[in-house]
Simulated scan of single mutants.
Amino acid sequence: MKHEEKVIDLAAHKQNVANFFKGEFIDENILQVDSEVASGFILFFQESEKVNMMCFNIQLNQDVSYYINLENSSYFNRAAYFFLNNAYICNLNDNNEQQVKYNGFLTANKEIALKGKAKKGDFLRHISMYYDEHLFDEIRNEEIKTYYKSKQEFLIYMDARDELQFFRKTLWRIFEYPEEVRNKIIRIKLQELKYIFLQRLVSLDVSKLDVKASGITTYQLTQLFMIRDRILNNLKEKPNVAELVTETGIHKTLLQNLFQETFGYTIYNFFTVNRLEQTRVALVDKMMSTSEIAFEFGYSDVQHFSSQFKKMYGTSPSAYYKQFNDPSE
């Protein structure tokens, strides 16, 4: 089954979703689905005049493909997608595509279309948020607020960090609650998600960026994901920025700026944060010693590793280990 949608206004958007899944509105904002297409529910939530959200809990009964063009929408000019894996984003200006695999979120303006495929039996458990630049008024930092309001084209991406992982796990459990309780709690959770989203935006150090408002090309985005995947696949070795500049053909300053704008960190800091996160997991799950972890993840010495770990998590590796592996218990 194929779904193509050009979003015009909120009412039309909701009706298009209902028509595609062959669902029935049991009230104005809850779509119940029990059809040959899928089973489950979709909750629509108007958090404010400037923010509308859709929460999907659908299991597919057949293969589907979709293409959502947001270019002509009237009720928002930016969109954010949470937990929607294996989708493709398509830049309407150059008509090129980039596959995005993520467990966090991406947000972009209306120059980005969304497309994807899902198989029979798959669960669609994701959240879409549609908003306009007035949402940025909730940001107190004037420099950051001005930065985002001035961006005509942008793409922001975030891997699943602790707050998003915890949010997703609790939300999935809430899906199993009785309907009359479930729907009320989901609305509260969606408000929470909006502020997790805002926190990601305000964490960007815009004072160090010098990216023009022209946006990011599909080629540049492809290269950024190549760099990201390469780092995550080899957390023992520090990324060589000079080699990446040569390989991608993107100027060093622009490459660093685009990477930080898209992923929230410079290339080296992205490596550092993700390497430390893996050491934290190893301490708890694998019960490795501090020296073993330092060797496993390519640190020059144990003291350097311990210093970086304490700076990141506020405690030493050995103290963190004891929190989860108390021999007296």
Score class of each variant (00 low, 15 high):
Glu4Asn: 11
Gln303Cys: 05
Leu255Glu: 09
Glu138Gln: 11
Glu24Gln: 10
Glu176Asn: 10
Val37Gln: 06
Glu237Gln: 14
Asp326Gly: 07
Ser150Lys: 06
Gln99Trp: 01
His134Trp: 09
Ile127Asp: 01
Phe76Gln: 00
Pro178Val: 05
Val51Arg: 00
Met158Ile: 08
Asp132Pro: 01
Asn19Pro: 01
Asp132Gln: 01
Glu237Lys: 15
Glu138Asp: 13
Ser300Tyr: 06
Ala80Lys: 02
Lys322Thr: 07
Lys14Cys: 03
Phe44Ser: 00
Ser291Tyr: 12
Asp63Val: 04
Pro178Thr: 13
Ile68Cys: 01
Tyr148Arg: 04
Phe21Thr: 12
Leu244Ala: 04
Glu5Asp: 13
Cys55Asp: 01
Val206Met: 03
Asn141Gly: 06
Phe305Arg: 15
Lys236Glu: 10
Lys115Glu: 03
Ile89Leu: 06
Glu261Thr: 10
Met312Phe: 14
Asp9Gln: 00
Ala80Arg: 02
Gln46Cys: 00
Val100Thr: 15
His251Pro: 01
Lys14Arg: 14
Ile174Ser: 12
Leu204Val: 11
Arg280Ser: 08
Glu28Cys: 06
Phe175Val: 10
Gly104Arg: 14
Ala79Leu: 01
Lys115Tyr: 03
Lys6His: 07
Pro327Gln: 06
Thr170Gln: 14
Gly298Asp: 03
Asp205Lys: 13
Ala80Glu: 02
Ala160Val: 10
Ser300Met: 11
Leu193Gln: 05
Asn52Tyr: 04
Phe82Cys: 13
Lys169Arg: 09
Asn77Gln: 02
Arg187Ala: 03
Ser306Ile: 07
Leu235Glu: 02
Ala319Ser: 09
Asp27Leu: 15
Asp27Asn: 15
Glu329Pro: 01
Arg140Ile: 09
Leu135Ser: 04
Gly249Glu: 06
Lys110Ile: 15
Ile58Tyr: 05
Glu192Met: 08
His251Asn: 13
Leu155Gln: 00
Ile293Thr: 06
Gly121His: 13
Glu71Phe: 03
Arg228Gly: 07
Ser316Tyr: 06
Phe263Asp: 04
Lys311Arg: 14
Val284Ala: 10
Phe259Arg: 11
Asp122Met: 14
Tyr130Trp: 12
Asn96Tyr: 10
Gln46Met: 00
Lys189Trp: 04
Asn234Ile: 03
Ser307Pro: 06
Tyr268Glu: 14
Glu47Gly: 01
Ser35Pro: 04
Tyr299Ala: 15
Gln323Leu: 12
Leu232Val: 10
Glu49His: 04
Lys169Phe: 05
Glu97Ile: 03
Tyr67Leu: 11
Val7Gly: 04
Tyr313Met: 10
Thr272Glu: 10
Thr253Arg: 08
Val284Cys: 05
Gln59Lys: 12
Glu5Gln: 15
Leu209Met: 08
Asp63Phe: 02
Val181Thr: 11
Glu5Cys: 13
Phe271Tyr: 15
Arg78Gly: 00
Lys115Trp: 01
Asp301Ile: 13
Tyr265Phe: 15
Arg125Asp: 08
Ile127His: 01
Lys286Arg: 08
Val241Pro: 07
Gly249Tyr: 09
Glu133Phe: 01
Asp205Trp: 06
Thr315Asn: 05
Asn274Lys: 03
Gln15Val: 08
Lys194Cys: 00
Phe45Gln: 09
Asp162His: 11
Asp9Lys: 00
Asp301Cys: 13
Lys322Ala: 12
Gln15Ile: 12
Trp172Met: 14
Ala80Ser: 13
Val64Thr: 07
Leu70Met: 10
Phe41Tyr: 04
Ile188Asn: 08
Ser289Val: 07
Leu224Pro: 11
Leu135Glu: 02
Glu47Ser: 08
Leu43Asn: 00
